[in-house]
Nucleic acid binder design. Structure first.
Lengths: 197, 197
DNA sequence: TTTCGACCAAAAAACATAAATAGTCCAAAA
DNA sequence: TTTTGGACTATTTATGTTTTTTGGTCGAAA
């Protein structure tokens, strides 16, 4: 079945990317790892970009799935926010070889080639991430766990929460000076949560 | 007077750097702009790095001075935090040509050459920035405007506040999608402030 | 004490050349 | 008919070489 092979190829490529990073994997690497000739790949995908895209989409939905799974294990908004932050941090850690180019890549043009694609996919991810967070905050408002937010307030809160998380993440992975990163995220979530009350 | 000339050269170089960015300015550019021959510069400074350093130090103390000036215009911690954030944002804007390489530069090795120097100066700046913020928060605690923080709690709060600000800054300058950046920082400060109560 | 032109070594830019690599085509296997 | 791989091409990318720029020195002169 053609769909099976596609998935298998994507999984294979995913492993390779995680090992060597996005830019360092050639079509032949993928082909060899998938146990087929290079040109056979082109039977399933029409370009390298298409494979990249598929892999990134997969990664993203895995992260989102994990996020949702973790979030649904807790009742309170505060705990959900902590889950959200924790998953984001863990994933950034685990996949940093993949995202080294992606997350960091947003500022340096050094990554010339794949930038557009990654930007696109990343934007897509941000979008979905936003929606999840939005729902959390709205639910928290309805719960009276925090005060109800206006549309604009909601936008602001989301932006602040996400960019702050990214900023912290960045600082931590860049300088690695922090002993207990998890603690920091917990404190931040607590602070954010209380600030919205 | 030799000291005057030094200052004049620094000021000249500062303008050049702001216009063309750190990496794009040669010693001859500086010399010409300062109205002297290149080798005369070496009478006042022993290397290009020394000029860079002097300029960066100047910039930093200007920012810190402006921060302190603005902060001292308000009484409440909340307002002081807003001042702090506002100055940081304005300065990042104004000097982005200078800091494009510096702030962003911390993650990409593309800027190979000047990285060490900038890292050093930047670290130095972070240090001073931290001290200012630390004093604010302690004062706020003594005021009972926020709850008193433990040493560890203080560290965490500072890290969170600064990295969040940087994250927001980053996101704003990178994607420029936000209409009212100032609003965002105000909201964030309010949130942070309330979170510490 | 301060300035400058001439000079040098090292770094960077520009250029040319060789090696990889994405993608195509077609014949053959399944 | 669907799927595969080997031979081939057109671009990119890596490499090595030459030329130019640039940081830095020196000694003479103002």
């Amino acid at each position: 079945m053609t769909s099976d092979k596609r998935l298998q190829i994507i999984a294979t490529a995913q492993k390779l990317f995680q090992k060597k990073g996005l830019g360092m994997v050639t079509m032949e690497d993928v082909a060899k790892a998938a146990g087929m000739g290079k040109s056979s790949l082109y039977y399933y995908f029409k370009s390298k970009e298409e494979i990249f895209n598929a892999v990134l989409e997969t990664e993203i939905s895995e992260i989102l799935l994990e996020t949702i799974k973790r979030i649904s294990m807790h009742e309170s908004l505060l705990e959900k926010l902590m889950d959200f932050a924790a998953v984001k941090f863990e994933m950034a850690r685990k996949r940093k070889s993949l995202y080294r180019a992606m997350e960091a890549g947003m500022d340096a043009e050094a990554l010339s080639r794949y930038n557009d694609l990654k930007k696109e996919v990343h934007t897509n991810y941000l979008q979905k991430e936003k929606v999840v967070l939005q729902q959390l905050l709205i639910a928290g408002g309805n719960n009276n766990e925090i005060k109800k937010l206006s549309a604009a307030g909601l936008e602001q809160a989301i932006f602040i929460f996400l960019s702050a998380l990214r900023g912290m993440n960045r600082e931590i992975t860049l300088f690695g000076t922090t002993e207990q990163p998890e603690e920091l995220f917990i404190t931040f979530c607590r602070l954010f949560h209380q600030g919205l009350q």
